[in-house]
Amino acid sequence: MVKPDISVIVVGVSQGGLEALGILLEALPLEFEKSIIIVQHRAADSDSYLSEHLNLISPLQVKEAQDKEPILPGVAYVAPADYHLLVEKQGTLSLSDDERVNYTRPAIDVLFDSAADCYGPRLMGVVLTGNNSDGARGLKTIKDLGGTTVIQDPEDAQVPAMPLAAQAITQIDHTLSLVGIAKLLSNL
């Protein structure tokens, strides 16, 4: 069976994320047409600096996700602090303040599970630098439902624990540096 084109990329990142997301999003081309949905672990009371900063340096529009917002091509959405971010079948985003998962809200697994459920083989999941194991189980769900799995090369990651945890339980399709991941996305 021919694999359908990837239409959405979900990204999970923790410690070292500001820098890693900066490198990744800065390197994407202006004409990039996929949607990117990002969970970055951060303090519950942090403001929207992260998305504003990334929006300035990336050719893509980067914005904090709002509830029931439609997922558009060429836009990167960042989960707001203290809310889980989920994908709905209608192609919209929804937020939840359900309990923490893996001690964190937003949790990468919550985003990855819901996105895998909606997009199946049209989804790519990317786990970047971080000092915990959130995202590992979610990446496995993505793989189980036919999606493509990517981790940041642990040697390239500021903190390798998160990509290593993902690699330990899931078959990884691409292990790449941040620059390599940007290239992979650009060629989708």
Partner: peptide
């Protein structure tokens, strides 16, 4: 209800 959260619950 928003389906993704509902299914989680």
């Amino acid at each position: 209800y928003a389906r993704a959260s509902l299914k989680r619950r």
